[in-house]
């Protein structure tokens, strides 16, 4: 599992590139490019459609579907923003909160399980670890009831706490493996200096864990960001809805208002676009971190 995570790289290592067979036939190379261009076009045209529809009004969409001509309705974005803006805020708070809390808890547990000694450590670790193998499909209803009994319904915490809980098994496993792999001397020397466990964790373990932390934060963030079903059942007030349920709701109530709807879809894609633009490598690793979860 680790192998996969570490090997997703941007750009091909030079060694591999050099050894690839030389293919004299240029048209073979051309065919490959043509294939890839076609694939990318097919993959991306729905989003291109989305972009072009986002600046049209309903008449333009209905009668001039494939043309884009003035007047351009950039006001669609203003209209969409007033509705989608708060959803983005909600999504950011929930996804960000979940990511932040879960990295601290999983890192602490990773350190505790990886480097500390205390009775009952192994059984406790197994409790957490074993849940990784148990599917969560039947959790929905009881989780809903639990959220209600804890008084969490209709609050950000319903999403955050359950997301943090869901992140535990896999990321505790990863953190523990990572911490256990670090040289013991690093920790011992700090102990000799009289540092307490909390300080060692804060000043030594956390900095060491940094690459895994960002990976896990991103993974948790994306999971919450794209989650639809859980917020659908737990968060119902309009002013607390995340983008997933919020957009689905808008699309069913603003029927016919396609322009502003599409503008809303575009706006909802911006935060991840920014994340992608600024942290491409981490972003991609975060994705596969999720895939490896199974």
């Amino acid at each position: 599992m680790d192998r996969i995570e570490q090997d997703v790289r941007w750009g091909t290592p030079a060694s591999v590139r050099l050894r690839k067979p030389a293919r004299p036939r240029a048209w073979g190379e051309l065919a490959k490019h043509a294939f890839m261009i076609l694939v990318c076009l097919l993959l991306l045209y729905p989003f291109a459609l989305m972009l072009q529809m986002s600046v049209k009004d309903t008449e333009q969409i209905m009668y001039e579907f494939f043309r884009i001509s003035s007047p351009y309705h950039f006001d669609n974005y203003a209209r969409a923003w007033s509705e989608v803006g708060p959803m983005i805020k909600n999504s950011v708070v929930m996804a960000g909160g979940s990511a932040l809390i879960s990295i601290f808890i999983t890192a602490a547990a990773g350190y505790g399980f990886g480097k500390l000694k205390f009775p009952g450590k192994e059984p406790l670790y197994w409790i957490v670890f074993a849940k990784m193998m148990l599917p969560g499909v039947m959790n929905l209803i009881p989780s809903f009831v639990l959220a209600w009994k804890l008084g969490l319904l209709n609050s950000y915490w319903a999403v955050i706490l359950f997301a943090v809980g869901g992140a535990q098994p896999f990321w505790v496993f990863v953190m523990r493996t990572f911490v256990a792999g670090q040289p013991q001397e690093l920790f011992d020397s700090a102990k000799v200096d009289g540092a307490g466990e909390a300080r060692i964790f804060w000043h030594i373990a956390l900095p060491l864990l940094r690459p895994v932390l960002s990976l896990s934060a991103l993974n948790v963030f994306l999971g919450v960001w794209n989650d639809y079903i859980w917020p659908l059942v737990t968060i119902q007030s309009f002013d607390k809805r995340p983008i997933t349920t919020g957009l689905a709701y808008l699309s069913s109530t603003h029927v016919g208002d396609y322009g502003p709807l599409m503008a809303g879809y575009v706006i909802a894609s911006v935060p991840l676009f920014l994340l992608f633009a600024f942290g491409m490598k981490q972003f991609v690793q975060g994705l596969t971190g999720g895939a490896v979860k199974l």
């Binding site: 209600w148 008084g151 969490l152 319904l153 119902q236």
Partner: peptide, 21 residues
């Protein structure tokens, strides 16, 4: 105001009643 669409009205009340909100 909460539209009925997509069963949204009932689902909102479901959660609000159980949480006494």
């Amino acid at each position: 105001y909460q539209p009925l669409a997509n069963n949204g009205y009932d689902k909102l009340l479901d959660t609000q009643f159980v949480s006494h909100e």
